[in-house]
């Protein structure tokens, strides 16, 4: 089995976990930079998937399963957006080219994102895997994923003998997740768009690892693990709920101001807070996970709310901790309720 993008926490965790499965003989971990975390007993090969050298790695190792995790929104360390985009798009093209030449490859798993649906007020409330997006993402990571999925579809047409599984993950949260939304939630004060309360869905890292395992092995009886699947925890949280549960105050800004501030921050190179991200935080996005349950046979351990609670615990208290607010309300409640013992006795008299 060959896994790309192992220098990231998620890739590292997956590599460590997958080696414990009896079906897996050997794991070849590939990334352009050496990982800081250990990879268990996996063989690390330092190779840049943007270079044709990846084909040689694949041919030499004769891997039968390729798990492509190097489709990410954020650069590792201090990389620029251009590098990320090249790794996402060119890297996928090179990797798929390599897979096409390799007769050994039987299974391909690609990490994608629900970003492919975009986010617009004219969209239906819940996306299924077949819903066409009303407005295609114009740039950033979302456009990368659209292009990656396009190449993967092309590959699946040319190599019908390979089982291809595309997993569209909702916003991944967890103690080590490095997604733009996770870094947004670490801000002390959350800027929000005035007059909009987006619906968000989260998926826990543990569930991500688990579903990647299911997708990279032979399918269980009665399930099918090739195709495209939305992966998200049950339920929905509004951004306002998230900020309150996290205990971080929000600053509602007018939409033009947010767009302007976003482009300013991007120009200064502080963070890749893309227009797609702003659209997500304006209109929100909810996907249907019926296919995930019924076809893939995967049931996430964490709901959206539980994932978020777990994440909030790892973040530490914000400026307005919910416990403090609840305590304040309880103190107000204690005032009339302290005397609240009297009315029943009076009426009894």
């Amino acid at each position: 089995m060959l896994v790309t993008g192992v220098a990231r926490q998620l890739g590292g965790r997956f590599v460590r976990r997958i080696q414990r499965d009896p079906q897996v003989d050997r794991v070849i971990a590939v990334d352009a930079v050496a990982p800081e975390h250990h990879l268990g007993g996996a063989d690390f090969v330092q190779a840049d998937i943007r270079q044709p050298g990846i084909a040689r790695v694949l041919a030499e190792t004769a891997a039968d399963t390729v798990v492509h995790l190097d489709v990410t929104a954020m650069a590792l360390g201090s990389g620029s957006r251009t590098t990320v985009k090249e790794t996402n798009v060119i890297g996928t093209m090179q990797l798929l080219g390599a897979c096409q030449k390799s007769p050994n490859v039987k299974r391909l798993v690609v990490k994608s994102s629900t970003n492919v649906y975009g986010s617009a007020p004219r969209d239906p409330a819940v996306f299924t895997e077949t819903t066409p997006p009303k407005s295609l993402p114009s740039g950033g990571f979302a456009k990368d994923t659209v292009e990656v999925e396009g190449y993967v579809r092309g590959f699946a047409r040319r190599r019908p003998d390979v089982a291809v599984c595309v997993l569209r993950f909702a916003n991944i949260l967890g103690p080590t997740a490095d997604t733009p939304l996770a870094s947004y939630f670490t801000l002390p004060v959350l800027p929000t768009v005035f007059g909009y309360d987006p619906r968000l869905q989260f998926v826990h890292e543990d569930d991500v690892i688990e579903v990647l395992r299911i997708a990279s092995h032979e399918p269980e009886r009665g399930t099918l693990n090739s195709g495209t699947f939305n992966i998200a925890g049950d339920g929905v949280l509004l951004l306002s709920q998230c900020s309150r549960r996290l205990g971080r105050p929000t600053v509602p800004l007018l939409l033009p101001a947010v767009t302007w501030a976003g482009s300013l921050v991007r120009t200064l190179g502080m963070t890749d807070f893309s227009p797609e991200q702003i659209r997500l935080l304006t209109h929100g996005r909810v996907v249907s996970t019926v296919q995930m349950r019924e076809t893939l046979g995967f049931r996430p351990k964490y709901t959206t709310a539980e994932t978020f609670a777990e994440f909030a615990r790892s973040q530490g208290p914000g400026l307005l901790p919910p416990e403090a607010l609840a305590g304040a309300v309880d103190r107000i409640a204690a005032l009339p309720l302290a005397g609240g013992g009297h009315p029943p006795t009076q009426s009894a008299n």
Partner: peptide, 23 residues
């Protein structure tokens, strides 16, 4: 009613309420 209102306020302030897929 006050007690009801306060527990409502408490749930609201701590984000402890449910919404469905449609919000």
């Amino acid at each position: 009613r006050i007690a009801g209102g306060l527990s409502f306020l408490r749930r609201r302030l701590t984000g402890d309420y449910e919404v469905d897929d449609f919000g």
